[in-house]
Design a protein around this nucleic acid. Structure first.
Length: 354
RNA sequence: GUCCCGUUCGUCUAGAGGCCUAGGACACCGGGUUUUCAUCCCGGCAACAGGGGUUCGACUCCCCUACGGGAUGCCA
């Protein structure tokens, strides 16, 4: 039958040949819905407005399979009714299912529902993100150190916006979000936006909350966040070192444990011989008041009186302390460490250079 | 094939006929602060899919085409 229809250039569909035969249900038969053959169904979509479907396009869809089990459409309609659903919000891939389900509702005498068909979230390849993919990647994003609130924010901003605002929390969304304002076209999920929003959400956290969020990520690296005598100062100064909690955690490693490996390029570039390190080590050793500002002025004096460039003085110390040239301000970094620990690390680099 | 949905900067979007020389954000590029990195600040680049109408005037309304997506299942 379908082949004949295709050959005739028609839409392949059940032609209702057994419709009026007065067949009673028996084993191995399916139950179909006698769909009206003329007229149309108008779906009033909250996002897209009126969508019309001609009943001629629909065939008598199956409600019960030949084994007696109900099909998705029937289940869907009954379930919505039993659950007292008033508004159906789902992906736009369900738009063409809607008139079928409305016919079932009508046949069952159920009240009409409101519909809102959301645009789909697409991957970078412009292909839709499948439910499964989305679920696993959501977990992955959390594991990488993206905040729930940032993920929610990012998702909410796909297809929806409000003025010039970018940062939203759940309470804002409850108050401001309107389904009618949602965009019609599918939106590509862009990780760089999540990165940025995560950094915003991260910086809005109090230090205490931030530490609580960060702690598990450090634990994954076998580090106890409390295992540092200047915990608060350290964490606070490293908060912006990355967009994610896992990134920040790994940046924190050299502060908690010793230096695993030095940045050889940096050593080559900034340390000609160990003499300057030795001088600096002795200079720092003379500081009794291990205070950020005292340290800074001491180093500054040294740099000026010896007519050296700032990096020539700072970078060797930085490399000693954290293994690379990346760290917060040097005075701050030194003051984060205990004086002894700082000197130890400098000694270590001196002997490493040999 | 037929029916349905969609189409503004690289990305997310603003825009409901003149306010548009098309605005914002992210990304990117350049500059400043930090004589490191990150943060932060300033500046720059960059778009109405195409073609017809309607109108004094179209990103905005209508039609067609193209492209993308969905439906056409005894899957959900």
């Amino acid at each position: 039958m379908r082949k004949e229809q295709s050959a005739a250039g028609k839409k392949p569909m059940y032609d209702g040949r057994s419709r009026n035969l007065g067949l009673s249900q028996s084993e191995k038969t399916v139950l179909r819905l006698a769909t009206p053959e003329s007229g149309e169904i108008v779906v009033n979509d909250l996002i897209r407005g009126e969508i019309k479907f001609s009943n001629k396009e629909l065939d008598d869809l199956i409600l019960l399979r030949s084994d007696g089990s109900p099909t998705y459409h029937l289940c869907n309609v009954v379930d919505d009714y039993e659950q007292n659903v008033t508004t159906v919000i789902r992906g736009e891939d369900h738009i063409s299912n809607t008139p079928r389900q409305i016919h079932i509702q009508n046949a069952l005498g159920y009240p009409p529902l409101e519909y809102a068909h959301l645009p789909l979230v697409l991957g970078t390849d412009k292909k839709r993100l499948s439910k499964r993919n989305a679920a696993t990647s959501l977990e992955e994003y959390k594991e990488k150190g993206y905040l729930d609130t940032a993920i929610l924010n990012t998702l909410a901003r796909l297809g929806w916006s409000q003025g010039e605002n970018e940062v939203f929390y759940i309470d804002d969304l409850i108050k401001e979000f309107k389904i009618e304002e949602v965009q019609k076209a599918g939106a590509i999920f862009d990780i760089t936006k999540l990165d940025w929003l995560n950094s915003q959400h991260l910086s809005n956290l109090t230090l205490e909350d931030f530490k609580n969020k960060l702690s598990p990520f450090l634990k994954n690296l076998n580090i106890d966040i409390k295992d540092h005598r200047n915990e608060d100062k350290l964490i606070d100064s490293m908060r912006t070192s990355d967009n994610t909690l896992s990134g920040i955690s790994s940046n924190l490693v050299p502060y908690y444990t010793g230096i695993e490996t030095y940045d050889e390029k940096a050593i080559k570039k900034f340390i000609k011989d160990k003499s300057i390190l030795v001088q600096l080590r002795n200079l720092l050793n003379e500081i009794n008041n291990w205070d950020q500002e005292v340290i800074e002025s001491t180093l500054k004096d040294f740099q000026v009186t010896n007519d050296l460039s700032v990096p020539a003085v700072n970078q060797p110390i930085r490399i000693s302390l954290v293994g690379s040239t990346k760290s917060p301000g040097l005075g701050l970094t030194l003051s984060i460490f205990d004086k002894n620990e700082a000197l130890n690390r400098i000694d270590k680099l001196i002997s490493y250079i040999g």
